[in-house]
Computed example of a mutant assay.
Amino acid sequence: MLLIAIALQLVSAAATDPRPINTDESVQLDDYPQEALRNAQTGIVTAAVSVAEDGRVTGCDVVESSHFASLDSATCGAIRRRGRFAPATDDTGRSIKGVYYRAVSWGVGADQPRTIMDLTLMTQNIPPGYANPAMLQAVFGPSGHIVRCKIENSTGNTGADSVACRQAIATIAIAPPITRNGSTPLAVRSVIVTFRAQ
């Protein structure tokens, strides 16, 4: 059994976003609702986690539903119980409130939905300084198209990083996310972008 979680920070006015201190520990296999497990219910839940100035979790809203209330509820329940964060900061370094977006994939084996996507870009020449594929965090809006792209791990070339985001935005879409609570639907995924010479 495997539980995959990825995360993305989104804060409108923060110089730094909230950062999870214990991403791997906040949602665990034991959090999988037993009835959902018995009924082979799977899905991806994206949660908007409100983080206070002292790093405490003050709220959790499901912005992408798995289509199963028990999985949606289990996601926020686990994050509220065990989530630990370094707070967002403003441009002076002062701690401020922020929002952290986290996607959790509930599933077992081959039935587990993927939260990581791959994109290969063919190019005449490998960009100078290219050391490795880019790891992007992509936020998908209500239409299922990327509305924000953030470089999590650079290729080693800022131009290639920019191209990676632009191409991801131009070519990748998902099924439009839904919510159960009326909030604006958003989904978070990781995208690995590899450059290959033709």
Rank of each mutant, 00 (worst) to 15 (best):
I6V: 15
G77M: 05
V147C: 11
A170V: 02
A5W: 02
P133H: 14
A131I: 02
M1R: 05
D61I: 01
G77S: 15
P127A: 10
A187V: 00
S105V: 04
K150H: 09
L37R: 14
V108K: 05
P142H: 07
E53F: 02
A164K: 07
T158D: 09
T92C: 06
S26T: 08
V45H: 12
N153D: 10
I44T: 12
N125M: 09
E25I: 00
S143V: 01
T120P: 05
D24W: 00
R81Q: 10
T115N: 03
L186Q: 11
P128T: 15
R189Q: 10
T23Y: 00
R196C: 02
V51Y: 08
H67E: 10
R102K: 12
R148H: 09
I79M: 08
R84K: 14
D118H: 11
S162H: 07
P20H: 08
A187M: 03
T16H: 07
F140G: 01
L3P: 06
R114K: 13
N153R: 15
S70T: 14
G107T: 11
N125K: 06
E35N: 09
I4R: 10
F195T: 06
I174A: 01
R19L: 08
T46L: 07
Y32G: 03
M135I: 14
I151L: 09
